[in-house]
Design a protein around this nucleic acid. Structure first.
Lengths: 235, 235
DNA sequence: ACTACGGTTTCAGTAGATGAAATCACCCCC
DNA sequence: GGGGGTGATTTCATCTACTGAAACCGTAGT
């Protein structure tokens, strides 16, 4: 460990190498679906031998499993914890609280509505109410996009007072045929999530998006309030 | 590194020390809900300083968060991966395939039906269809019980040919007022999961359990077949 | 039979993890 | 307001447990 010559002390928080790598592997394997040793190793640019050792450990602990082809995927322990995260605790409450508002947005706009939260420098879509239409946005639950240059990101970073008016729009930023409108969900002045409506770009046009804004603003405000009050329910 | 001669509450398989500990911490924190530094440290019987260092790293990576009281809980990265695990890949397919059969069991027995899988020496309940009755078994999704001495465990360990007849029963094994019947779900001769009906012991009595057996056997066979065929859908 | 390509094993060197102890930050009680 | 108790945080000398290059193995392709 060397200290840089000048000014600010390195924010290089001494994070354990071994642990960090194991976690990165877990993340990579779960995100990429079934994946082979060589592929993960290359993706994280770490030597195959080290990668193998870690993957073995993860499999032994039940965090990952190996299918017949030798490829790695999520294991029973991951599933156990995944269910805990989504059915207990703060996140479960967030998801439950958001559902009716997502559905209301779908009813109002006929497009799919998502809930998103921030994860470091990315935004993660964590819940959806799907549009009833045949052509619709779907499948992005658990998906993450960069915070920079996206509408969701803008909402999640929002730090003004009047969150109601903070509706951001973005058209074809990530995928050329997707258009979206988003609004921050604030509780006690802090943005905790964002509501988001996504649709095909030629149906969800300027006029449709404009119409969606009102509903979005109303629902994000309502969700924010809903999240503010039941803080009583501790634990 | 000495292993404390004392008993360690969670039977942790030894992997690389640093990585293993980080993962154990992740598991403990997610399982226990919001929990303080001292509590986790004691639960895993590791020194506070080491525990703190690891928790900090996990928080920095988004795996955990710290609430206002300083207690730790699941973080956004955990939620992202949790959603991936439950909405993509093999487990998602398992959950989706099981749902109709769980519902059929509820319709047939009027008691709650669970799907369980094996995780090391434990059985994890991973899906539920709840009984319509007011008094019912609920809330065990993500919960795990030992494999030894439970009916679910017996089913998950089953290795005979005729899985249909392998219905196990258990009454008050873990909780005194719960009775259950279970059956293994086999695909290609290997047990991959277990179906399980749980109810209050005095309503779900011998007669009711006997009646449930047929439905259980039928549904577990059907689920096994359903899981066997769509293996086509690779990835 | 030869080559290429993943996965697996080995092993010596040292980066990096560890934990006892000291310190700090609160509360609560007297 | 001071004293004592609890729990979080920092420090640092010690030494282990992690690393990765290289060699090896097995299988598939030509």
């Amino acid at each position: 460990m060397k200290s840089p010559p000048t000014t600010s002390p390195p924010p290089t928080l001494h994070v354990s190498q071994s642990a960090g790598r194991a976690l990165n592997l877990l993340d990579a394997v779960i995100s990429e679906g079934p994946i082979a040793l060589g592929a993960v190793a290359e993706r994280l640019s770490m030597p195959a031998s080290t990668t193998l050792r870690h993957l073995r450990a993860l499999v032994a602990g039940g965090w990952l499993t190996q299918d017949d082809d030798g490829r790695y995927g999520p294991g029973p322990t991951s599933l156990r914890l995944a269910l805990r995260v989504t059915s207990d605790g703060a996140f479960a409450r967030l998801l439950a609280a958001a559902t009716p508002h997502l559905e209301a947005l779908v009813a109002a706009t006929q497009e799919s509505a998502y809930l998103a939260i921030r994860d470091g420098s990315e935004a993660v879509y964590v819940a959806i109410a799907e549009s009833p239409r045949a052509i619709r946005h779907a499948g992005w639950v658990g998906h993450s996009v960069p915070i920079e240059g996206t509408a969701v990101g803008e909402s999640l970073l929002f730090s003004g007072q009047d969150a109601v008016v903070a509706v951001a729009e973005n058209v074809g930023a990530l995928e050329p045929d997707v258009a979206g409108v988003t609004a921050p969900v604030a509780v006690g002045g802090a943005v905790v999530a964002a509501l988001c409506i996504l649709g095909p770009i030629d149906r969800f046009d300027r006029r449709a998006r404009a119409a969606a804004r009102d509903a979005l603003a109303a629902e994000s405000l309502a969700l924010g309030r809903a999240l503010g009050s039941p803080e009583l329910a501790v634990n």
